[in-house]
Design a binder for these strands. Structure first.
Length: 940
DNA sequence: ATAGGGTTAG
């Protein structure tokens, strides 16, 4: 290990040579080798420009020869012949021609070499060279080096040369040299009206000194032309001051100056990131007005601008309208599709592209890879990789980061390691993206030590690397270690940013420590980082994950007090909480908020709305939203199926499942939990078996304890107690408390004392503190009139200090939630409620209602039992709803435990007598009463 | 220097 890490580090240092130095070495050595200019002098004497070469003295005319060259190879051959015949280029114009030809065929390295080694440089040649090579990737460091040498020898350059050198200084961040040149310009009396010099100065100041000074230079100019206008807009864009840039752009249009293509392309780029979409659209209009639509780069930028603002259709429109398209155009539209999640459509574009005779390049493939990676579709990502390799392209650092992202889950560790191997073999580890995704991959696959190793070996740890490890530790619950790492990074001089703090916040929040998470949010504020939407959403989602719903609502209110506005993620978390609390009316408010704020098209939000409506007992609204989602994500199907399960609408639930398969969506673990719940709640035994088998054989989903528990309950409740027993004996997982609980509840329904007592024995060991199990036994014994056993269970309950679960029901009226407890605090309007309830009961009795006292498990007289029956919390809540809620809206009551059969009957009567729909929710199931019938068909 | 691909927090 020790050795390995040493070589690793060694390779790093050689790879971390400054990129331009590397390029310098590379070009320089190859140029010397192939040109064989061993004796070429760097100290060439200036020669006066002579006349045409006399043809008599040469049997080959280099100028004619060069001009006749059709490709790079023949230029090189001519060059070599010249080198053999002459020691060096005596004549400037031959060198110039050589440079021109090299530049024409795109070999900047040779062009530069010829310039530096081949002929004497004076002002004129400098100027000529710089003009020709401006905007090309020539070797700027060498140019500056030569400039300084000549300047030191006393060569005096004119303004145009200085302007160009200033531009190079700006790009290379040579602050001192640039300032010296400015000084010289001032000394010799800088002419403010020379726009070439002044715009170069603005560019230099904007990049290397300060934006304000650049703007000041602009303000003090006596006259401005296209060049200076475009320059100042560009300077502001580069410095990120896009508001000022947009303002200047408007004034510029007003003043009649003409915008360059490049300025508008850059402007579009900025508009695609920020809230500058309106401006982006205006520029689109400007483009159309001025007839720029034939400019390919401009259209490509427009495609990207629209897609980054989520307007895929507009992107496509621009793409379709283009007369000429290059590879970048295709890549732009491909990335538009992948970034917005339509990777399959992007794959379709690949074929279209090939019919147009264009071959996808590495960028195209990487775009597709990243699309699948961000959706965690590892199989598809790997398929893309294979196609890419078949086409002769090898993955680069960009491909590797995507691939690593795709395989970042425990079951794909082997693949992750293989990719790590590839990275090492091909020396791709110098790239920070590769390193950080490696860290992240090892964290998500549960290999923390490996993540640490990659981190420790990093040559230069950037903030993302620190954050990756910190988030990994927080995610795993190693919060002390995460805090220690934060102090360490502070010691090493790296200031934690919002992501660092948020990682810690979310760590505490997901591990159920809301208070601690809030404290960290306060701490980050003290450290000068304001808690943002993500911080708040992390805490909110922590509350929701830990079923800490009340706190969640408080956190949401606090967030609003702090003036942080919610986004789609916040809303999704909030909706989950509201759904779990069945706060339908608050959920509806959030729904309208989504409509107002254009969040309704967000797939996560829509899914959360489906879930909220289903959980709050409004299945119809859930279904309406569900069918309105354009590209339904897997989760939304799962929620919808679960919704039908809760309402016991088996046929419809299975129909949705089939529709999902037809849509080509592959079901996952949760889908099958939902489908089996549908079967369980609707008593569909045959279907249950079918899907349980299908799940394993066809979809490779390994049964979880939830699936097994569904099967036990399905078989048991349907009366197949022996089959349920056999299932438990042969199931692939060790039966836990949920399994035995499900079995016991079935035994209770079918009054099978013998099997119930076996289950009860197991439960006393597995779950001795769950009052629900005790209640089931009390229920069973009392139904068999075995009051001694009832007493026995009650005693063991108090001996084990098991608290009887609180029983309550609630109803939401306007903004208030009214809770009715079985014991303890009475409702302030209790008198009025009982008055109405007794009135209802006497009406019901006239219609044939007989109180069902079987659910009173106390050994008391019948009339006493009837009285107890009237005190059931759901009856009180329903009655209160009838009193307070006028109109025709359904009465919605939520109960925290199961309904009793008498309340079920009463609800049916009320639905007829008061002509009102009633929705009664008991934990994970819903009863919907209408016209004297219940959606469950009385089977539960 | 103008268009296309990648990393961390919910």
């Amino acid at each position: 290990m020790e050795n390995f890490s040493v070589t690793y580090r060694h390779c790093y240092s050689s790879l971390f040579l400054h990129q331009s130095h590397r390029r310098y070495l590379l070009n320089h050595s190859s140029a010397c080798f192939s040109l064989d200019i061993k004796h070429a002098s760097f100290e060439s004497k200036p020669t006066s420009v002579s006349l045409e070469p006399s043809s008599s003295s040469w049997d080959f005319n280099p100028l004619n020869e060069l001009n006749g060259c059709k490709n790079l190879i023949s230029v090189k051959a001519t060059h070599a012949r010249m080198m053999k015949l002459f020691d060096r280029f005596e004549l400037e114009y031959i060198a110039k021609c050589l440079i021109t030809r090299y530049l024409e065929f795109g070999d900047f390295g040779y062009a530069t070499t010829v310039f530096f080694l081949g002929f004497p440089r004076n002002q004129v040649s400098w100027r000529d060279f710089l003009e020709r090579t401006e905007n090309f990737g020539v070797e700027k460091y060498r140019v500056l080096g030569e400039f300084v040498q000549l300047q030191n020898k006393g060569v005096n350059f004119d303004e145009v040369v200085l302007a160009m050198v200033l531009r190079i200084c700006a790009v290379l961040m040579y602050r001192l040299l640039g300032l010296t040149i400015h000084g010289n310009l001032i000394k010799r009396g800088l002419d403010n009206s020379d726009t070439r010099v002044v715009s170069a100065l603005m560019g230099f100041y904007g990049r290397c000194v300060s934006l304000d000074l650049a703007n000041k230079i602009f303000d003090e100019m006596p006259k401005r032309d296209d060049l200076t206008w475009n320059e100042i807009v560009m300077v502001n864009l580069r410095s990120g001051n896009w508001e000022k840039a947009v303002k200047l752009f408007r004034v510029m249009q007003f003043s009649g100056a003409k915008a360059y293509d490049s300025t508008m392309v850059k402007l579009l780029q900025v508009c695609s990131n920020k809230e500058g979409f309106a401006q982006g659209r205006q520029i689109h209009g400007y483009v159309l007005r001025l007839g720029f639509e034939s400019n390919v780069s401009m259209c490509n930028s427009l495609i990207v601008m629209y897609s980054r603002n989520g307007k895929l259709e507009s992107s496509r429109k621009v793409f379709n309208s283009m007369k000429d398209r290059n590879l970048s155009s295709w890549n732009s539209i491909v990335s538009s599709y992948t970034k917005l999640g339509y990777v399959d459509d992007a794959m379709g574009l690949l074929d279209e592209m090939e019919t147009c005779g264009l071959k996808p390049d590495i960028v195209t493939w990487n775009s597709l890879l990243s699309g699948y990676a961000s959706k965690a579709l590892s199989r598809y990502a790997i398929a893309v990789l294979k196609r890419m390799q078949i086409s002769g392209l090898n993955p680069n650092t960009s491909s590797i980061s995507s691939l690593l992202q795709a395989v970042a889950e425990p079951r794909l560790l082997k693949l992750g390691k293989a990719i790590h191997g590839y990275v090492i073999r091909n020396q791709l580890w110098y790239d920070v993206y590769v390193e950080t995704t490696l860290i992240d991959m090892y964290i998500k696959t549960g290999y923390l030590p490996y993540a640490r190793m990659v981190f420790d070996m990093m040559y230069e740890k950037n903030i993302v690397a620190w954050n990756s490890l910190i988030s990994g530790l927080s995610y795993t619950g190693l919060l002390k270690e995460a805090e220690a790492l934060i102090s360490r990074m502070e010691k090493e001089g790296i200031k934690p940013d919002a992501v660092t703090w948020n990682s810690l916040v979310s760590g505490y929040a997901t591990w159920g420590k809301t208070e601690k998470a809030l404290a960290v949010a306060g701490k980050m504020k003290k450290n000068g980082v304001e808690p943002n939407v993500v911080s708040w959403t992390a805490i909110l989602s922590g509350c929701s994950k830990n079923r800490n719903f009340g706190n969640g609502l408080k956190v949401f209110m606090k967030m609003q007090e702090e003036g942080v506005s919610p986004n789609s993620a916040t809303i999704s978390s909030l909706l989950r909480i509201l759904g779990c609390l069945s706060l339908l009316y608050s959920g509806k408010e959030v729904h309208s908020f989504c409509l107002k704020n254009n969040l309704i098209h967000d797939a996560h939000v829509a899914t959360a709305l489906v879930d909220m409506y289903a959980k709050s007992g409004d299945l119809q609204s859930a279904a309406e939203i569900f069918w309105g989602i354009k590209n339904k994500p897997l989760a939304s199907w799962n929620c919808m199926i679960m919704g039908y399960a809760m309402f016991r609408r088996g046929e419809e639930g299975i129909a949705v499942f089939n529709a999902m398969l037809e849509a080509g969506i592959e079901p996952d673990v949760i889908t099958f939990t939902s489908v089996l719940s549908v079967c369980k709640n609707s008593g569909l035994v045959r279907e249950g078996w079918k899907y349980f088998d299908l799940m394993r054989s066809h979809y490779g989903v390994i049964p979880t304890i939830e699936h097994c528990s569904c099967m036990v309950e399905l078989l048991g409740r349907s009366g197949y107690l022996d089959e349920a027993w056999d299932f438990i004996q042969t199931m692939p997982l060790k039966p836990d408390a949920t399994i035995w609980g499900a079995f016991l509840s079935s035994c209770k329904i079918h009054r099978d004392l013998e099997l119930a007592e076996i289950a009860w024995k197991r439960l006393q060991v597995l779950e001795p503190h769950n009052s629900a199990n005790y209640m089931m036994m009390i229920n069973l014994y009392s139904n068999l009139n075995r009051w001694e056993d009832v007493e026995h269970i009650r005693n063991s309950m108090s001996n084990n200090r098991v608290r009887v679960q609180d029983l309550w029901s609630w109803i939401q009226i306007d903004q208030m939630v009214h809770i009715f407890y079985a014991e303890g605090k009475a409702h302030p309007d209790e008198g009025e409620i009982y008055f109405e309830l007794y009135k209802l009961v006497s009406e019901m009795k006239k219609s044939g209602y007989v109180p069902d006292t079987r659910c009173i498990h106390q050994n008391v007289s019948e009339s006493e039992k009837e009285k107890l029956l009237m005190g059931h919390t759901e009856k009180l809540a329903m009655t209160y709803g009838l009193i307070k809620k006028k109109g025709i809206a359904p009465i919605r009551v939520v109960k925290n435990t199961n309904l009793c059969s008498d309340c079920h009957t009463v609800a049916k009567y009320i639905s007829v007598l008061r002509n009102r729909e009633i929705v009664l929710q008991e934990g994970a199931r819903v009863h919907h009463f209408r016209d004297g019938k219940c959606s469950c068909n009385d089977s539960w």
